[in-house]
C-alpha cells in the first residue's frame, strides 16, 4: 500500500492507504477528522467540501493518492486560537444551521464564494444562491445560510 503525505490544517500527516481510498476517507478514518461529512457519496450534496490548495473541492470525489503533497484545510482548521472563523461566526449569528449535517461543507463552500468575489465591492445575493448550487441543506431552506454568507463578506474582505 502506498504511503500518502499531505499537509492538513497546517500539520504534515502521513498514512498508508489503498489507491482507491477517497480523500474524505483518508481524513475521517485515517486522521480522525470527522468534521468533514459524507452526505451522498455521489458528488451532489457538498457535505464533504474541503479546500485543496486553496480551492473548495468535494473530498468524496478525489483520491487520497491524487493529493500527495497537497495543502488541505478542513472545517477543523478554520478556528484560530479558540476564535471562530468569521464565516463560522456568521453562521452562528444568523442561525444558518439546524441539524448541522451540511454545515461543514456549507461553510467551506461559503468561504470559497467569498474568496472568489473578494476583489469586488459587493456580493449579490443572486451570486451566493447560484454558487451554492453544489451544497444541499435539508433543514434551513437556505435563507439564513445566504444571510450568513452576505454578512461574512465584509468581515472577510477586511
Amino acid at each position: 500500500m502506498p504511503t500518502v503525505t499531505m499537509t492538513v490544517n497546517g500539520k504534515k500527516m502521513s498514512a498508508e492507504c489503498e489507491n482507491r481510498t477517497l480523500l474524505v476517507q483518508f481524513l475521517r478514518e485515517k486522521q480522525g477528522l470527522t468534521g468533514t461529512h459524507v452526505g451522498c457519496d455521489t458528488t451532489q450534496c457538498g457535505a464533504c467540501v474541503v479546500h485543496i490548495d486553496g480551492l473548495p473541492v468535494k473530498s468524496c470525489t478525489t483520491l487520497a493518492v491524487q493529493n500527495e503533497g497537497a495543502k488541505i484545510v478542513t472545517i477543523e482548521g478554520l478556528a484560530k486560537d479558540g476564535k471562530l472563523h468569521p464565516m463560522q461566526e456568521m453562521f452562528r449569528e444568523h442561525h444558518a444551521l439546524q441539524c448541522g449535517f451540511c454545515t461543514p461543507g456549507m461553510v467551506m463552500a461559503a468561504i470559497g464564494i467569498v474568496d472568489r468575489h473578494k476583489g469586488e465591492p459587493t456580493l449579490a445575493e443572486k451570486t451566493v444562491r447560484h454558487e451554492l448550487e453544489g451544497n444541499f441543506c435539508r433543514c434551513t431552506g437556505y435563507h439564513n445560510i445566504v444571510k450568513a454568507i452576505m454578512a461574512a463578506f465584509p468581515l472577510m474582505k477586511g
Partner: peptide, 9 residues
C-alpha cells in the same frame, strides 16, 4: 457546468 466545486476539478 455543475457547481463551483465540480468546476474546480
Amino acid at each position: 457546468i455543475g457547481d463551483p466545486q465540480v468546476r474546480n476539478r
